Simulated assay, not measured.
Amino acid sequence: MMTIDNEQKHIRDMQGCYNWIVVSGSHLCCLFVYGWYQAIGPLFVAIQHYFEETSARTSWILALFVSLEFGFGIGYGLILPAHIGIVSLYINKHFALANSLVMSGSAIGIFLFPPLMQYLIDSYGWRGAVIIFSGINTHMGISAALYRIPARLGRSHDVKQENKSEVQHSNICRDQCEIWDFSLFRQNPLLSTFTLANLFGIGVGYQSLPAHLLASADTKGLGSQNQLAFLISFLGLSSLVGRWVPPLIGCISKNRITSNTLFGLTLLLMGIISMLSSLATTYATYAVFACFVGFLSGMCFVVENNALKEIAGPENLTASLGFAVLATSVGVIIGPPTAGKCNMIL
């Protein structure tokens, strides 16, 4: 028979293996959610051509389409806070590594999905492409099937049950019910600044990019639709590289550079690069711009979750992510139409 210590070690080892299975499930969620949103670039151009409308008016369609409820549709809005929040329940010591693995899924999706979207549009039209992508997104159910309540090991105080380990379950349902805990802003004043950064830096700024980058290049006649779709793939490939830079910086600096500092710095650099985007006049310069933004955004999205964990603590990570996603969704409603209007003026 197994001793108590051996049994607990066996359960701990099994739990440790399953932790990384959960990470792989969250990785798939990132791949589908963020990959789909970046694939909106080719869809934006297709809808604009189909209705023969300006980018400003077409932007309203996409803004309402992707921002319904909490973020990228009701389903996406529920997925986004949970897919990182559940990783924090399973992974503590190596959370930065796990977070990079999870968020690298979005970079892979950004690299793969825009050319796929353009191919589907060419083959089945934009309506058919949306239907097929909806079917592809149902595969996120596989990720959901991997999630379960994490077990916590403990010892029973009952002498009669001393040969059995006591398993305590985290109440995930309670955590989800407390997702709108506004007292977090009072307890963590920096969270307000962080939420505003998500509203303007990510929602209004970055999330307007995939649609209008392709629309701008298309207006200038810089290439075919298939060539333009690869601009987002360049962004995704460089984003994949950028997502592994924060753990490397943390290792080199021995964690003296905080995630909050990196988050603010990457947002600042993304803003500067975006202001210089008007200098891009050829396909090559558009590709370089996409690579720079992709690299910085890759860093930004990884350190965002680490920064939230530093600000609010791991027990409040899911709730904090809920507010961040809500702020981003409001920015997504505002950003694309505003960018389209500015594109007409300039």
Rank of each mutant, 00 (worst) to 15 (best):
I249R: 01
Y124E: 06
R127Y: 09
S238H: 01
S208N: 09
T338Y: 06
G105R: 03
S24H: 05
L146C: 10
N137L: 13
W36L: 11
S24E: 05
R57G: 02
S278A: 08
N306G: 01
S320G: 05
G331Q: 08
P189T: 04
R12H: 08
R127K: 14
G264Q: 12
W126G: 04
L209T: 15
A63L: 00
L231N: 00
L296K: 01
K9H: 08
K93T: 08
I232S: 13
S165V: 14
D158V: 10
L62K: 00
L196M: 15
M275F: 15
S274R: 03
L28D: 11
I4L: 13
L190E: 05
Y34G: 11
I131N: 12
L43D: 04
G135D: 09
E315G: 02
M2K: 10
V245P: 00
G75E: 11
N163M: 06
F111N: 02
V303S: 07
L308T: 12
L112N: 04
F289I: 06
V102D: 06
G105T: 02
P115H: 07
T282R: 06
N343D: 09
A129C: 09
R155A: 09
F95T: 03
G340C: 09
F182W: 07
L237H: 07
G25M: 15
G16T: 08
G205T: 04
A324I: 11
L267S: 04
A82E: 03
C29M: 15
G125F: 14
L112H: 04
A82W: 04
V87F: 07
Q168M: 07
G271C: 03
F301W: 12
V293A: 11
S192V: 10
V66W: 07
L190N: 05
F295H: 01
A46I: 06
S216L: 14
L146A: 11
G340A: 12
K220S: 00
A144L: 15
F65R: 07
Q15W: 09
V330A: 12
G340S: 07
L346C: 09
G135C: 15
K309N: 14
D181S: 02
F301I: 15
L214A: 02
P337C: 06
R152I: 14
K254G: 03
G73C: 11
S320H: 07
W36M: 08
S192P: 00
P81C: 13
A144H: 02
K160M: 13
S297H: 13
M140E: 03
V302G: 08
S239H: 07
L112D: 04
Y50H: 11
K9G: 01
S216P: 00
A217E: 00
G264S: 13
P42Q: 07
N255M: 12
F289P: 03
G25Y: 12
Y37Q: 15
